[in-house]
Simulated assay, not measured.
Amino acid sequence: MIIINTSVKGKKYRVSIAFLLIVAVVVVFFIFKSEVKSEPLASVEVFNDIDFKSNNADVDGHKKEFKNTLDEHLTELKLSNDEKTLILTALENSVFERIPNANTSDGDYLINISLNKRYEIYLDSTNKQLIFANEHDNDSNHRYYKFTNDSGLFKLLEESTKETLDK
């Protein structure tokens, strides 16, 4: 003779556990989905407290070049005021997506932007990535960004580097 436990209390307990497991799976799914497919971000969402209308605007920087695999050379960007304005405008109009990590440790450009405060960023033109040199510049804990639209920023930087090397 088999005795089947048909107590109501036991069934409610199993249903509650099953419900909690389903809710947990749904929550984990939505968290994973939001991390994998991020929403487009504007520059003001990526940079901490940036004010592109600041009167103290300035841009300078360097391009890394490798003469051979061991010799790294920095070429200073000599930017005119018009080029600085175009670079800031392109950066302001750029669109980003958050990525889990950068494909590179540093980019091929180290850019210093002075507006309402100073921002130091590495730009990787190959992977179209932005990496902050100082984490407090974007209130992040190792967050990395990929340009989905660079608004011509990398083309401007490449042209200004070419002009510097031609001089």
Rank of each mutant, 00 (worst) to 15 (best):
M1C: 09
M1S: 10
I2M: 08
I3T: 12
I3L: 09
I4W: 02
V8E: 08
K9M: 04
G10K: 11
K11T: 04
K11Y: 07
V15Q: 14
A18H: 00
L20N: 06
L21Q: 07
L21V: 11
I22M: 11
V23D: 02
V23K: 06
A24V: 11
V26T: 13
V27S: 14
V27W: 12
V28P: 00
I31F: 04
F32Y: 14
F32I: 13
K33Y: 15
E35M: 14
E35I: 09
V36M: 13
K37Y: 11
K37F: 14
K37D: 14
S38R: 07
L41Q: 10
L41H: 03
I50Y: 02
D51W: 10
N56G: 02
N56H: 04
N56F: 08
A57Y: 03
A57C: 05
D58K: 15
D60L: 12
G61H: 06
G61E: 04
G61A: 05
G61F: 08
K63Q: 08
K64Y: 11
K64F: 15
K64E: 07
E65G: 03
E65C: 01
E65T: 11
K67E: 12
N68I: 13
N68S: 14
L70E: 15
L70N: 12
L70F: 15
E72K: 14
H73V: 15
L74N: 13
E76Q: 13
K78I: 14
L79H: 02
N81D: 15
N81S: 14
L86G: 00
I87S: 01
L88R: 08
T89E: 10
E92C: 01
E97G: 00
R98F: 00
R98M: 07
I99A: 01
I99N: 03
P100A: 08
P100C: 02
N101L: 07
A102D: 00
N103W: 01
S105C: 00
S105M: 08
S105I: 04
D106S: 05
Y109W: 05
Y109C: 04
L110W: 10
L110Q: 07
N112Y: 11
N116P: 14
R118H: 09
R118A: 07
Y119E: 09
E120N: 06
I121P: 03
Y122E: 08
Y122F: 05
D124L: 02
S125W: 02
S125L: 01
N127L: 03
Q129E: 15
L130F: 00
F132D: 05
N134Q: 04
E135K: 07
E135D: 08
H142P: 00
Y144S: 07
K146M: 08
F147K: 11
N149K: 10
D150H: 00
L153A: 03
L153T: 10
K155S: 12
L157G: 05
E158N: 13
E158K: 13
E158R: 14
E158H: 11
E159K: 14
E159Y: 12
S160I: 07
S160G: 06
T161S: 13
T161K: 10
T161Q: 11
K162P: 00
K162G: 01
K162I: 05
E163T: 09
L165T: 07
D166L: 11
